[in-house]
Design a protein around this nucleic acid. Structure first.
Lengths: 109, 109
DNA sequence: TTGTTTCATTGCAATATTACGATGAAAGAT
DNA sequence: ATCTTTCATCGTAATATTGCAATGAAACAA
């Protein structure tokens, strides 16, 4: 039905899925990469950098903000977005633990 | 429109997004975790382990297979799925490089 | 042969995501 | 005050994803 039955999975499984969604669209990957590149914060010239319309960028920024991976500071008429390093680190811990499962496993077939 | 304009992003950005989609659903996370846990391959008792219908599990397995993260060996009437360690490692290299962006960046706001 | 088991595929409904035009809100400039 | 700039939000259309009942295919058992 298109409904993720989150109650039938562990908290960890749901958390990984939610975090992975942040990277599951190239526009959000591009946004994050650009925010890291221009480390001295940056505003909505993301719209110029990436070739999507302003409401679309704004929507992607909102999702990343909801996850806590980025934060936005209002500066006059513009808004300065940047990575929340603390949240990024927390996310990385969870994702890395998942990705490193192979270290404990043995090859089979 | 719901259309990811992949031609406007870099090859790397699209690759990260495609790989991240593998983990963007708790059922696929659960499948991968179970395959790692039962490292001596395992078949479709994933249907019993996870509480989803057989066609649904089969569909998720297909997606993971398309990405190359798992492979399936037919054994009589059953199919034995397991992680493709080589592909997993390649995926991990790409994802880790993306996640480690913060190591080169400096905090801003 | 007929039945059974296991899994893939088809077909469809429900829901989620993505994209953008139009509009609104807030801050500056004039 | 009006105009402009910048961004958020609303509304809606297009597309993608998820889930499962029904069915099909392949291997095995009788």
């Amino acid at each position: 039905m298109g409904l993720a039955k989150s109650e039938m999975f562990t908290k960890e499984q749901n958390e990984i899925a939610v975090l992975a969604k942040a990277f599951a669209h190239p526009a959000r990957v591009a946004i994050l990469q650009h925010l890291f590149k221009i480390n001295t914060c940056i505003c909505g010239d993301l719209v110029n950098e990436i070739g999507l319309a302003q409401p679309t960028i704004s929507q992607h920024l909102k999702e990343l903000k909801n996850l806590g991976l980025i934060k936005g500071n209002v500066e006059g008429t513009s808004v300065c977005y940047c990575i929340d390093m603390e949240k990024w680190g927390a996310m990385k811990t969870i994702m890395t633990a998942f990705l490193d499962q192979d270290l404990k496993a043995t090859q089979c077939c």
